[in-house]
């Protein structure tokens, strides 16, 4: 059940992503509408993080392409923001909360330039929105898990983007923080921003998201929550891996097989 969006902000065309040659996402093909709060759900190892990493150009795609605002990623980077999992960095780094949030401005600043007063204003504003304005000078090593997550969100807000990809922003946060974050995300989508969130807790899906993507190594569903979030599709998503699919993937890795024929790649390049 894959519903296509009209005037999509994101178009993923036949995307296959491999780690060490083993495909972890097979032929994902979908479009996402603008101004909505979108959840990506699926079991562990389903490729949820991989999908957004590959949209952000952090993992090489074996085949297929991604269009954002109908353009290539590198032409629209300024309009897109990425929130990595908070475990992906070492929080015992010599930096303050403000230092980290200011990093959200580095893309707009460009090389060599130091953050200006205006950038600090934007960062302060972002910190206020996540309720961390009292912590600007706090060392990041002294933050709780929920506060770390808020800092990462503030950094993303400081980017002033139109499209946000967030990898598990609700992981390891307390109930109060989760509520604060979802309120913020709702406000963002109400203002016309599109927010795509990797999510783990199935219970809150209908309450949180307008649109849901269901993944398990392949795309099972993508569409409005009320249409696709049903028992049948959930069972398909969580009902075990397709063992044949993962066995073929394993074989590709073991045999050092190319995941696409060389010839076709060249053809594709010529087409572009």
């Amino acid at each position: 059940m894959i519903e296509q969006a009209k005037d999509p902000v994101l178009e993923i065309h036949d995307l296959t992503v491999s780690y060490d040659r083993k495909p972890v996402l097979w032929d994902v093909d979908l479009t996402l509408p603008a101004g909505q709060l979108i959840g990506i759900v699926g079991p562990n190892g389903a490729g949820k993080s991989t999908l957004i990493k590959s949209i952000m150009g952090l993992t090489p795609n074996s085949s297929g392409y991604v269009k954002l605002f109908d353009k290539n990623l590198k032409d629209v980077r300024g309009k897109i923001s990425y929130v990595p999992q908070k475990e992906s960095v070492d929080w015992d780094f010599p930096a303050s909360v403000l230092d980290v949030v200011l990093m959200g401005r580095y893309g707009k600043l460009g090389l060599f330039k130091r953050p200006r007063k205006a950038d600090k204003d934007v960062a302060m504003d972002a910190l206020r929105k996540v309720g961390m304005e009292a912590y600007i000078n706090r060392q990041i090593s002294q933050l709780s898990g929920g506060q770390q997550q808020r800092v990462f969100l503030a950094r993303a807000l400081a980017q002033q983007a139109d499209l946000y990809f967030m990898d598990e922003p609700f992981a390891g946060v307390d109930a109060a923080t989760e509520k604060a974050i979802i309120t913020l995300l709702r406000e963002m989508s109400a203002r016309g921003n599109t927010v795509v969130v990797v999510h783990h807790d199935l219970q809150s899906v209908t309450q949180y998201f307008d649109w849901v993507i269901m993944l398990n190594m392949r795309l099972i569903a993508s569409g409005p929550t009320e249409k696709v979030f049903n028992t049948e599709l959930l069972q398909e998503t969580y009902g075990g891996k397709l063992t044949l699919l993962s066995d073929v993937g394993e074989l590709i890795r073991r045999e050092r097989f190319p995941s696409r024929e060389q010839k076709r790649k060249k053809e594709l390049k010529q087409k572009k």
Binding site: R77, I80, D99, L111
Partner: peptide
């Protein structure tokens, strides 16, 4: 001193720096 900010972000969060479009 010229690339202080870039070296810092590369040491703290390389992937995020890449998504900002920094080389």
């Amino acid at each position: 001193s010229l690339l202080f900010k870039e070296f810092t972000i590369a040491a703290f969060d390389k992937e995020f720096a890449a998504t900002l479009g920094l080389p």
